[in-house]
Design a protein around this nucleic acid. Sequence first.
DNA 1: GGCGCGCCTGAAACCGTTTTCACAGCCGTT
DNA 2: AACGGCTGTGAAAACGGTTTCAGGCGCGCC
Lengths: 364, 364
Amino acid sequence: MPRVVTIRTVAERAGCSIATVSRVINGSARTSAEVEARVRAAIEELGFRPSEIGRSLKTLRARTLGVVIPSLTNPVFAASVAGMEAEARRRHHTLLLTATDYDAAREPEVVETLVAQSVAGLVLTVTDADDNPTLDRLDAEGIAYVLIYNEPRRTERAAVSVDNAGATFALAKAMIAAGHRRVIYVAGRFATSDRARTRYLGYLAAMSEAGLAAEAPLELDYLADPAGHGAALAGVFGPPGRPTAALCSNDLLALSVMAALRALGLKVPQDVSVAGFDGIALAGAAYPSLATVDTPTRRMGERAVEKIFELLDGSAAPTLERLPFELRPGGTLAPAPDASPVASARRPDAASPSFPASPEPPSE
Amino acid sequence: MPRVVTIRTVAERAGCSIATVSRVINGSARTSAEVEARVRAAIEELGFRPSEIGRSLKTLRARTLGVVIPSLTNPVFAASVAGMEAEARRRHHTLLLTATDYDAAREPEVVETLVAQSVAGLVLTVTDADDNPTLDRLDAEGIAYVLIYNEPRRTERAAVSVDNAGATFALAKAMIAAGHRRVIYVAGRFATSDRARTRYLGYLAAMSEAGLAAEAPLELDYLADPAGHGAALAGVFGPPGRPTAALCSNDLLALSVMAALRALGLKVPQDVSVAGFDGIALAGAAYPSLATVDTPTRRMGERAVEKIFELLDGSAAPTLERLPFELRPGGTLAPAPDASPVASARRPDAASPSFPASPEPPSE
DNA sequence: GGCGCGCCTGAAACCGTTTTCACAGCCGTT
DNA sequence: AACGGCTGTGAAAACGGTTTCAGGCGCGCC
């Protein structure tokens, strides 16, 4: 028999009307000091806590924020959700969390679920931010939302992201600067991640700028058993003239690729350099430490929630906002083993980071 | 102007009463085929979706589940939340997610928040499952909850866990069987994690059984900068006669400890063996792969949600349920470098796992 | 042909809160 | 002394559903 004590119980106890109790609770209108004291005492004694449901029904707006992410298993999303949670709590809101498991078909239904809960707003990472009926519907209904990690081309969509293509461009350039000529882009779930696709464009641009031939991207499912990776990677790294560097679309994938390469008997970074994207905390604890693009994952979550409230109170129009990233050097990226037989065989040194931490490495 | 279409709009369009619309939606009573068709058509045309808030108000129970965890940043909690989310979705419920950041003082307030939302039940990991006023309050109010990873001594508390002490006992025994004599237990946030304390008991038991002297536990904050770890670890592993093995209270900590040991110039596992606890996905991708206790993290989350519903429909009484664990061998646990100068210096081999995967290794 | 029983249906109450509206009392001003 | 405004309060109307209750209608059975 939970919730036996409602605002009516309190009013009775305090000897006033429920309207007055409501006023005391919300400070929505002045009340006499005497009545206020009685009400506060009654609330205290009864342990009363107003029902958010009752409140929401009147307001037609719950103090909750809907969150839609592909998966909590990827630490990059877990970290950004942690940021959202902290910021939401600061603003007396709670997160309603849902995951799509990278299934685009699930997006409309989870958004429906959240909208049915009358959330104040939504934070989402979708598979495709441009061609997306679900987002169109939110636009049409005027429901506040902010994308995170997506970079919609349509600038009237609110989003918090990083320069995915630019960062990958810089990262690929760093690999090229380290002497790598055959660099392969490895993606997880290419089809269901516009991030992976956008990052690929950055890779292509860097290869093209350096006059190098781009490789066909290698697509791996990083949720599947790493054993599956082995076969795919063996196909690419087995033949002679194999790539000397793997640029992975995210850190989780990169760590998995490193394990798979080792299982194939290839040494990282002596045989193959590896880099990731995201800057998850564990990338630094890996051995060798993972070279990656450090994105402010937690801050992005916080910022997304801030943005929701800006949209709600009308203090800002929806915009695409790119937070700064940083190239993070790591032991997994070393100078290329000299592919040309004429050049001297310089030993790569795993211990020394091989590219500067500035976003734009020197152009030579 | 969101939510312009309510059950009343639908009723009008279908030419019937709102009661009938409700009946069609919920199948709570028979309706004529003709009316039902009209109602369904109206719902379709209007894109109507019943408000969960309106529904909950009558029911006094929302179709949401409150989740309280220390932090999403630890993959073990992220994975269990992923399990909860999947199971909750299966049952048409949504998660309300909150984190305490390992702050016991925050527990009562976040639980208050969730209760105010009229959640159907709660899944929580608390700092102390035995002496906990917040849980007492939930008991008193008859609100359904299930603990996860906690192992309350009070058996009338519902919980899904593993045998924390038993698993650590087995893990410590495996280390001892590998020849380690000085094994140190390294904990993160000892004060705010009854898991860390319970696991320590398992370590103590194993050391005692083997007639070895237990070391004082080393407490590290794995959220702090790993640089801080360095100093603490240097104090323990610097002096001669240092421990040859570190048993860490969780995987995240273990990976951080590995990085810190390397920074001190110590090799894992040649100089120091390391083991963790939890079995997070990335433990397997680490190099060397992390020896750990593999717990069914995701499954535990699913099971906790199942249990909530068992409690709600009265089909089961609250109990402490321990799911099976498995020792997972890993390259970080190798035979001890022979401490006794008289014995021959046998080279430890990082590649070969050094303990069997069975929960109870041979007692010699 | 009348009676009774199901089957569908609608009116209305209810859930817990916020908010509007009206009003009583008081004070200061003219 | 009358009047206007201001302050504090309560009654009541929402908000969007579910559910109870009563009743209308059609049908079968005596």
